[in-house]
Design a binder for these strands. Structure first.
Lengths: 350, 350
DNA sequence: CTAATATGTGGGAACGTTCCCACTCGGAAC
DNA sequence: GTTCCGAGTGGGAACGTTCCCACATATTAG
């Protein structure tokens, strides 16, 4: 790698000063059309590429948005990032991503890396960092938290209304006639807390007794919790899972125990990931507006005037997607159809 | 955001020169323990954080690896990035990711962004960029391509041996006694080409007639192709899909047509994503060593001695993971032909 | 005709580091 | 008692931009 050409090389070749080249590179109107053309040609000729470091240093702007993503394996964040990217690109910003790997140390290191880069905005998606780190970040740049509702009000955040989401699930099940609705709780996190409290609230409102089991956000967690439910003998007619993966685990446990879904037990997931939509799975689930979450987050990050009046915490409404993992409880009526194959074909059966 | 403290602020507070502070920040041994302690204390007191841009500019090193990932929704890349990250972190490098979004323009813009940043190494994961862009990138920094085998030999690359992978699938099926093995081809890309040629080669070796249908790497693509196969009336006893998602689509199409998997038709996927492992799906599939792919790629990027002897192409061996979507063909019978619509009517549809 | 304005252009000082060189000051070697 | 050396320190010149100010020239207003 030989030395890369600089603005001065371009200037020399084009026979102008570095100032003019700089202006051309920044689309300043203060350059004659003729000069601009010559500079552009010279730049192309020698393969000039602006040096971001020098640019950042001199201008104190990077036009980079840093996104620290808790878990790149979770497609939830990929969807969200699409939204972030779109808004950022539109406004002339680039989005760089670092993986937190579900690990506080890694996540905080990523935050530090972006702060050293002096990114113009920092997006923390599902962050697992200490309050102190968050505070330090906030002191250095604009920060928006996504997918986690925050306790305090000091940092701007965008999240789904998870209380409402859990309510939707319970209401759907109660509406179908279920009264024994169990809840599998996810690993400790703001969303898990909100979903639980939504469940509790709507169970109370419906006059039903809550049944809560500890699980986590994995297939295995859902499997273990549902198996526990089966073992206990007190099998509910419906289960709310903390996310789609856990719902799938729960379904597996139920089927392993000889129970049919939704025949014997209805199951509702959360997130509406691509998984839930697979025909084989066809999970009724609470949809999160993932892309919109990203868009709102980016807007919060980039909007010029940080009006203090503006809501600092944006909650987006979820909605329920009804597929084939839920049905009315067995009430002595006709046996519920098995949920496979596709709904269309079952419905058209004479 | 008030002005952030610089090395000079730290120096003033600690009562030393900026040179000393710089040395402390870079762990130089040429500082007395006493001075080091004072500097560190001063830095912590005023919340000093090195300015990456200034550092990069002065040292001409960034200690950043840029990774352009074709599609962040594909968990394949998340696994790979884990490998990249581990190796990079071990050697004091940070990995920043930009999403290509399956789009040449976005991907090339991401490449450009990283080149402007003057990253110390550039990883292109499943790149969809023009040869010219690749060449320009190579002229500017170290470049490694991952997950795509390249035609030429001019850029270093790490990939799975997809020819071998497809062979494994065919050999498994042939070993089970299948002779009608159809292949669904993925969207045009180096891996799709390799897998196809592996299929063709091993079919020929086994003395079997190849049947090839155009599909893509999505569930819908697999569904459509398998449905076409069903409609044509010439139903194979086994299908090789270009990836797991397409395999799932194919299975859905088969089951929608009243065929059972693996009873009537065996299906093999490719990639061994988390999807394939779900109990409900339990797909026999070709496993790619994703994390190892990332590790090798990072090593190639970071290994000190870039032997000019020749750019290397590393091919990692895949292996077959046998689950429940494959079985021996039904002895003697072809799958029930009576339930198929007339070929004439299907052929008239587009 | 002069003054004022608009339009380009050039030069130099930042920006916050690293890195090289020069310097001081003990102590060891002669 | 010099000389030499190494450890520790300080100062200044890069690095490649942006941005401000000064200037040159052409155009317009009075």
């Amino acid at each position: 790698m030989t030395r890369q050409p600089t603005i001065l090389d371009v200037a020399a070749l084009a026979g102008v000063s570095k100032s003019v080249v700089s202006r051309v590179m920044n689309d300043s109107p203060l350059v004659s059309a003729e000069t601009r053309k010559a500079v552009l040609k010279a730049a192309a000729n020698i393969g000039y590429r602006p040096n971001a470091a020098a640019r950042h240093l001199a201008s104190n702007r990077t036009h980079i948005l840093g996104a620290v993503v808790d878990d790149l394996h979770n497609p939830f964040f990929a969807d969200m990032l699409d939204g972030v990217e779109d808004v950022a690109r539109e406004r002339g910003y680039r989005v760089m991503v670092m993986a937190g790997k579900r690990n506080t140390r890694h996540e905080e290191d990523a935050v530090e890396a972006f702060l050293e880069l002096r990114v113009d905005g920092l997006l923390l998606a599902g962050p697992q960092i200490r309050a102190q780190t968050l505070k330090r970040a906030r002191a250095a740049t604009r920060v928006v938290v996504a997918a986690h509702r925050l306790r305090g009000n000091s940092v701007r955040a965008v999240a789904t209304d998870d209380i409402r989401g859990a309510e939707l699930a319970v209401q759907h099940l109660a509406g179908l006639g279920h009264s024994h609705i169990a809840y599998l709780q996810g690993a400790p996190s703001p969303p898990a807390r909100d979903r639980l409290s939504g469940y509790q609230r709507s169970m109370k409102k419906a006059g039903l007794a809550p049944v809560i089991l500890q699980a986590d956000f994995t297939e295995d967690g859902g499997y273990a919790a549902a198996r526990e439910l089966v073992r206990s003998g007190a099998i509910p007619t419906a289960i709310c899972a903390p996310n789609d993966l856990a719902a799938i685990g729960a379904i597996n446990a139920l089927e392993d125990a000889g129970l049919s879904v939704p025949g014997d037990v209805s199951v509702v997931g959360y997130d509406d990931t691509a998984l839930a939509g697979l025909r084989h799975i066809s999970l009724t689930t609470v949809h999160q507006p993932r892309r919109a979450l990203g868009e709102r987050a980016a807007e919060l990050l980039l909007d010029e005037e940080e009006e203090p009046s503006r809501p600092r915490q944006i909650l987006l409404p979820p909605h329920l997607v009804i597929r084939s993992s839920t049905a009315a409880p067995r009430g002595g009526h006709e046996p519920s159809p098995h949920r496979l194959p596709s709904p269309a074909s079952t419905r058209s059966t004479p």
